[in-house]
């Protein structure tokens, strides 16, 4: 088996590793940040990483079903951003700060 050069031959594994790295960066943001807006941005990063892997599999298997799923993920992401930002505004109006430790006081 001839040794293919990993630098000069781009295969699906390159895109998948890129997607995994982007997902991990987004997960680090969700775990480490306290600002609600940055938290939502990190969730968007994770959704984008998933989109990259969907499109990679769609391209390398020659089927369009993966791209349909990306449409659905994009719609859900937009809806989630709208609801999350409305909640963030509601937190900020009451506490003058957007920090997730105020989520527990939002009841009632």
């Amino acid at each position: 088996m001839p040794e293919t050069n990993i630098i000069t031959t781009i295969g699906p594994e390159h895109y998948l590793v890129l997607s995994a790295l982007l997902f991990s960066i987004g997960m680090a943001g969700v775990l480490l940040r306290r600002n609600l807006i940055v938290l939502l941005m990190s969730i968007e990063l994770m959704l984008n990483a998933v989109n990259i892997s969907f499109i990679t599999f769609s391209h390398y298997s020659g089927k369009v079903e993966g791209q349909i799923m990306v449409f659905f993920v994009m719609t859900i992401a937009a809806a989630e951003a709208a609801v999350g930002l409305a909640l963030a505004v509601s937190i900020f109006k009451r506490f003058k700060e957007v920090n997730i430790r105020f989520f527990e006081h939002l009841k009632g």
Binding site: L18, L21, L22, I25, G26, A28, G29, L32, R33, N35, I37, V38, M41, S42, L45
Partner: peptide, 15 residues
């Protein structure tokens, strides 16, 4: 570009 700007999202202190 993707990795560096993704790290920027997480590491920048100013939103």
């Amino acid at each position: 570009m993707t990795i560096v700007s993704g790290l920027g999202v997480v590491l920048m202190a100013n939103p």
